[in-house]
């Protein structure tokens, strides 16, 4: 808007705040002010932020309906876990470490990216059919993709099949041998911020806004010169790739993965976060991931009954605020003063 002039120089306030937040959490974890349980919740918040904002790219910004997001989380989780376990630990299946374990802190982010790349390739399972199919029919394909991935994992015995795969804790130990710091806090925080920057840059560029044009009128988008197939391919692969990075982080936080943790229930959780936050709002996806993670923990005493309470909350939300917490607005639209913190480009 012409009234809010953007300051010419990039403000450093937001990067400094984030760095302070990271240092704060790492210090609290290092001096054991917060116990492992609280630490895990903080890590889950970060992972869920990546999951909800990456799914939001497809379901919110692009207006498609993907309900198999957990499948891509699974690809990232397994690929990065197998890489780190094989490279840096001595494992029953993969034998002695292929590389000196001292390299683990360097190798870990690369393994995460490899997991993300594998998940992006798995994203083709949905991206290619999306050229000819959309709406409800594409939704069914996304569920099928979720099942294909899970079933494939169950049938590969080398990575544990239905029993699951473990050994990632030893990767964390290898990193802690090098330096005694809360590594996962560092990685989750860094990759959450990087994912958000990637998504923000994508949807704020004219290139990436092609997916918003698709959401509002796909025929007009194609007719006005947007290569809709290519932009869909890029968006689906970016979304599933980021989900894969979240999966790699999740696997190393828990130290154990099981195909069942990535079934349709997990995909549903991701969708609940997107609809809770607001379609096409990045800050909405962040807020809802934080709220949802805290809610899940708060309702833990209810045990299985929580799966009655949470869907009930979703029904109530859809009845009274179908656009979610933020609608399609961003936090900076509601509180313009926040723009002073940072020049979002």
């Amino acid at each position: 808007m012409p009234t809010t002039r953007i300051p010419p120089r990039q403000r450093l306030t937001l990067p400094l705040l984030l760095a302070a937040l990271l240092a704060g959490i790492m210090a609290l974890a290092y001096f054991e002010v917060i116990d492992l349980y609280i630490q895990t919740i903080i890590l889950f918040i970060g992972i869920n932020i990546i999951i909800s904002s990456s799914l939001n790219l497809v379901n919110g910004h692009m207006g498609e309906f993907s309900c198999g997001h957990a499948g891509f989380v699974a690809v990232g989780a397994y690929v990065s876990s197998v890489i780190t376990v094989a490279l840096f630990t001595s494992d029953r299946v993969f034998g002695p470490p292929l590389l000196p374990p001292q390299l683990a802190p360097l190798g870990f982010p690369l393994a995460l990216l490899a997991g993300g790349a594998a998940a992006a390739v798995a994203g083709l399972l949905v991206a290619l059919p999306s050229f000819r199919t959309r709406g409800d029919y594409l939704a069914i394909i996304t569920i099928a993709a979720n099942y294909i991935i899970i079933t494939t994992v169950i049938n590969i015995d080398t990575i544990g099949g239905a029993r699951g795969f473990m050994g990632m804790k030893r990767v964390i130990f290898a990193m802690e041998e090098v330096a005694e710091i809360p590594w996962m806090v560092l990685w989750v925080f860094t990759f959450t911020i990087l994912s958000l920057i990637a998504i923000r840059r994508f949807v704020s560029s004219t290139y990436g806004k092609g997916i918003i044009a698709i959401q509002q009128d796909e025929v007009a988008a194609e007719m006005m010169g947007v290569n809709t197939n290519r932009i869909k391919l890029v968006a689906f692969m970016l979304s599933s790739g980021l989900a894969g990075i979240a999966g790699g982080l999740y696997a190393h936080v828990i130290g154990y993965v099981n195909p069942k943790s990535f079934d349709i229930l997990k995909s549903t959780e991701a969708m609940v976060m997107v609809y809770l936050g607001g379609m096409g709002s990045i800050s909405g996806a962040v807020l809802s991931a934080i709220l949802f993670t805290l809610l899940l923990e708060a309702l833990r005493p209810l045990q299985i009954i929580k799966w009655i309470v949470i869907p009930l909350l979703l029904i109530i939300l859809m009845q009274f605020r179908p656009e979610g917490i933020m609608g399609n607005r961003e936090l900076t639209d509601i509180f313009p003063r926040l723009k002073k913190l940072h020049r979002f480009k």
Partner: peptide
């Protein structure tokens, strides 16, 4: 068939 929920400027840019 404009993109009705996008600014006029963005409609042109796209």
């Amino acid at each position: 068939r404009l993109w009705k929920d996008m600014t006029v400027l963005d409609n042109l840019r796209l």
